[in-house]
Every structure is written in C-alpha cells, then in structure tokens.
Design a protein around this nucleic acid. Structure first.
Lengths: 185, 185, 185, 185
DNA sequence: AATGAATGAGCCTTCATTCAT
DNA sequence: AATGAATGAAGGCTCATTCAT
C-alpha cells in the first residue's frame, strides 16, 4: 500500500484540470505545479501525457465494459435492453466527470488510442440496444436514449434540479424512447 | 466583389482543418501553407486566430438567430414550437460542419467569445421550445429533440442512410419528443 | 543580396560550436545566444537542427562531388588517380573544418541523412582510386593515401609546421602510397 | 570472485550501446533496461556515466601502455620500432571495439579525463615510433603506419576479407611505411 | 546489492503574434 | 494585399544524478 499514492493524485489533478481547461490546453507544468512536484516526477509515473488520459478513461471504460459483458449473455429482448439502460445509467452516475471530459474534448481525443477505446465501448453499448432490423427512426430513438442519459450525466444548464433528480428523469425519458423504438419480436 | 476573395478562402480552409484536427491543434502555419500564403497574410484579413473562428461561427448563428426572431413574435403554442423545430432543422442542414466543429471543440471554445455566442444562441432556441412550467422530464424531452436534430446534422456512424434521410428521420423523432413533452395550455 | 545574411551567420557559428563541442553537445540555445537572436529565429532559417548540419556538410560534399564527376570521364589509369588525389587534396584544403567536424562526430552523425551523404561521397572517391583487382594490401594503401590527406586536413598535433606545409607533405606521402599500390595495366 | 559480476555486465552492455549509438546518445536508462535493473543500480557500481567509459577505455590503455613500457627500455632503432608495431597491432586486435568507440566519439570524449588518457597513450606510441629529426613526410609516414593499423582494427567497409586478413595486410603496409620513413642512424 | 521516487536542468520544437517594408 | 524576419512564451519530454530505504 503506497503511502502517498502520487500516481493517484496525478490522475485526480489531471482530471480536474483537463475538465476545466481541456486536454490540449492543460500543460504538464500546470499539473505538476498544482501538486507541487516537478514535471519530471509526472514522467516517473506516466510515460506520456496521453498515458494519463488513458488511465483516466479506463475508469469509465471498465464499468461500462462490465455492463456490455453482462448483456452479451442475456436474451436480446426489451427487458434486457431496459436493464442495460439502467446499468449504463448507474455506471455513468459514478463516472460523470470522465464522460464530460470525453465529450468536451472530442477533437483532441479523436486520434488518440484512449479516444478510440472510449468510442468503441460506447458503440458496443449502442449495438446492444438496437434491434438489427430497426428503422432509421428507431435507431435514432436508441441513440437519443443514450444521449439523454449522457445529458444528465454531464448536467443540464439552467435547470434547478439535483444531479440525482436529473439522472432519474433522464432514465425515465430514455426508457420511454427505448420502448417506442422497440417492436415486439 | 473581390476577385479572389482571400478572406473567404481562409475561412474555408480553416473550417476544413479545424474540423479535421480541432481548433487548438490546427496552427495558422498549416492554414497558410494550404493556401500558399504566409502567416502574416492571415493577419491582414483577421486580427487573431479566434477571429477566424468567430467569423465561421457567425454562419451558424445568423440563420438560427433568424429562427429565434421569428419565434419571438409567434404565439408560444405547440404549432409554433413544431415550426421552430422545422426551421431549426433547416438551418442545421446548411451549417452541419459548423455545428460539428462546435461540438467537437467544446473545451477549446468554452472560454472564447465565439463559444459563448454559440451557446447563447442554442440556449435561446431551447428556451423557446420549453414551456415555463415543464417538468424535468419534459424539459429533457425538449433537450432530446434538439440533440436528435444535432445528431443527424453531425451524421450517425455506421448507418446506411443519406444525410437527407437522417435529417428527415431525426425531425420525425424530434417532433414526437416535442409532442410528448407538451401539455396543452 | 541579403543585407545581413542571418542564415549564413547561423551556419558559421554552428560550425564553430559543433567543432568545439560536438554536434550533440551543442544546443540551439548556444548558437542563438552567440548570435544574439532567439532560438525561434534559427527555426525561421532551418527546419531542424539536423538541417543546419546538412547545409554545412554540403560545402564539403559539393566540391568533392565535382572531383568525382571529373574523374568519371577520365581514363582509370595512374595519371588520373594522381590527379584525383591532387584535386581531392585541394578540396580538402578549403573544407578542413567540415571534415574535422565529420570525423569527430561520427557516432552522432552516423544515422543522419547528412552523415550518410558524407560517407557516400567519400566512398565514391575511394572507389575511383582503387583498381578493381587490387590486393588487400594495395587497397589499404589507397585507404592510407586518403587518410593521410585527411590527417593533414585535420592538422597534426605536436608538429611545428604550417597547415600548408602539412598538406604538401601529406600529398607527397599519399602519391607515394598510390604509386606503390598501383600495378601498370 | 563475484557470483554474477554485475559490474562486468554493465561494462559489456555499455560497450555495445555506446558502440551502436554513441556515448552521448546512449542513456543510462537504456543500459539499465537492457540489463533489467534500475538506473540507481548502475550508480552502485559506477560513480558517474563517465566512469563507465573510463573503465572501458582502461582495457585498451593498459595493454598499449605495456607495449610502451617495453619499448622504453629497448634501443630506439628500426628493429625495435618494427616490434612496437607488431605488439601494438596485437594489442589492437584484442581491443578493436574500444578503439572504434574512441574514434567514433572523439567529440564527446575530447574533454573527458577518459579521452585525454586515451589520446596520451596513443601519442606515446607515436613518439616511440618516430625519429627525433624526422622530416615532416617521414613523420606522416609513421602516423600513417599507426592509422593503417587502426583502419584494420576498425574494419574496412566493402571489403571481402576476414578481420584477421585485414590485420595481417595492415601490418605489412604499416611496416612498409615505417621502413620508408626510417633513415639508418 | 539494489530499488523507488524524485529533481533540476536542459533539449528540440512549435505557436500566435508583430512590424517594417 | 501581402511578405520576410523575428520574438516571447510555452510545450512535451529526457537525462544524469541523488538519497532514503
């Protein structure tokens, strides 16, 4: 058990700064200064700047991948899909800042391995949600269901409601959308 | 009418590169090289890098602002709101790349005047769409309606459908969401 | 005609410093400081540090390449080879510091394009000097002829003789070696 | 007798890497990684990076110094000088890589104690080889004799001959050069 | 005999911007 | 309408070295 977990602190501060200012706009100098260590110390713990981002993203990818794994063994019906939505919402609730980070920095992250991994995971969730023969509109409803969850995870602006309330309402709307997208097999 | 419209060409190339690589990651050198002029030439036409972005964003903001203006003088009922959605969708159709640019570069753009203007315009559209006493869920449905339009404007991945088809389907879904969000006055 | 020829001055100072300290050990900061410009100014004139070296090496490669070109059209006999030695010695006389630079920095330069070009040129001279069926000893004598010229170009240590005198003596020894390496066709 | 002789392994790996990449361009990190130990471990065995080089060079300096010592007590005539050449060639044969290392890294090594020691030893050999009243040309012939031996120790490029054959031929040429440089006392 | 963690200095390079011409 | 030359600031990264354990 590391006594002061510098590596963890780096991730934490990086998440803060990347979120406030964006990935590209945040320099390793800033992270180091905020932690009162030298830049070189960061390089002892992470091989590159991108590696810090990768480590951060893992914390979103892993829980979501677990949802995906669970879903793979379940029958592809409405009930399963509703449960996917619920579990995905729960995963999002815990990793909201990471999701916001990804969303706000799409351009920066597009060509990084970390970004590709993130997108892939998200695609897999969407694939599990949609029926293969879905109409374009129904596909869009599933996309909409996910995006509604995302909107709440990121947090609505100008709305007087707790994060908790937003997530609950978003899940309602998402389930609605899923239901109207779904034709009984 | 300028014979070669360098200013316009700069905007065009900037849009291409900002879209491909992101705003921060695109340097003025690259823009200049692609146009076969010097960096200094860019400064003859635009005071700063941000100014290029501002000019670009105007091409989205202006049409949307026209929608907003029109809506302000119309009665705040469902029919009006449906028309807002239709007009907004039409505006988005023409300015898709700009919207994508904004979406992909939120972090870079957040603190720029250009970004604030963009967000403000979008907020105004949302405000016109929602009833003042809407429940959180209904608010989310309106947000969802807008986001669905956005999703189509940006283009869905892994979907065999033309941009035109995506936009039509998205408008359908959006109108649905609006309807279910709407309680008759 | 450029008034102050910054590019030329950069080359000149770079040659000085690379010679004193070695290529790797000389930083662009040092070059810039000695010229009282910023590092960025160097990058206006040369794309990379290696580019400075490449430009420098050209000044040795070009004259020597001219010798090689001349020799290609001449009959491959002893008289021609003696003339090659004389012309090569003359080229070396003017570009002594560059040759010393190459010699002293072989390891640094080995994997750079500049280094390869340098070596290739030198190989071509050697090839012109040797008879195809030469014995190993005679091959070594030709190598020795070249190296003797090089030794004088670099300058002997602990010897009371002008550079001019060293070059003359070296040419004598080199011609001797060539003669004893040469069997009449 | 140490069981695993880490110190020796460090020298061996350092010689490999210094030879492949050059002294400056080889980092202690690389050496440590190749040995699967930490950088700090290197510092247990050597006080500095230069110390590794010094230890390496000793393996060339010592045998050559023995030749020098032997020569000091011998009469300064041609026979002795021929024997110097033979013994020096033998020493070179065993320490070829070290000599190559020195040659390829002259600039890096110039200001290090290790480099100075190396050069001094080489100068002493040359001094023993030359007659005090030698002409400049004859001096150059002695230099050439040594350099011919060096050329073979380093290995000729593009020559189909074993190292052994090269060394034998080189010794022949060197003895020739010495003979023609030598005036009977 | 060696590691884990860190430092201070420095490196090459790039950027947005300026300004005299 | 544009260029050539340059700047100041910063960026990501690497290195030799140290030291408590």
């Amino acid at each position: 058990m590391p006594r002061d977990d510098t590596r963890g602190k780096i991730q934490q501060v990086a998440l803060e700064l990347f979120s406030e200012q964006g990935y590209e706009r945040t320099s390793l100098r800033e992270i180091a200064e905020r932690l009162d260590v030298t830049k070189a110390a960061l390089y002892y713990h992470f091989k590159t700047k991108e590696d810090i981002l990768t480590a951060l993203f893992q914390e979103w990818i892993e829980p979501v991948d677990k949802v995906v794994e669970w879903a793979r063994d379940a029958p592809p019906n409405l009930a399963t899909r509703q449960e996917i939505l619920r579990r995905y919402a729960a995963a999002l609730a815990r990793a909201g800042p990471l999701f916001r980070l990804f969303e706000a920095n799409k351009a920066d992250v597009r060509d990084l391995a970390a970004g590709t991994a993130f997108r892939d995971t998200m695609s897999r969730v969407l694939a599990l949600l949609t029926q293969d023969d879905a109409s374009l509109s129904d596909h869009l409803r599933c996309v909409g269901a996910l995006r509604t969850l995302h909107a709440a995870a990121i947090g609505l602006e100008g709305v007087a409601a707790t994060a908790e309330q937003q997530r609950t309402a978003a899940l309602d709307v998402a389930l609605d959308l899923l239901a109207s997208a779904h034709v009984p097999d």
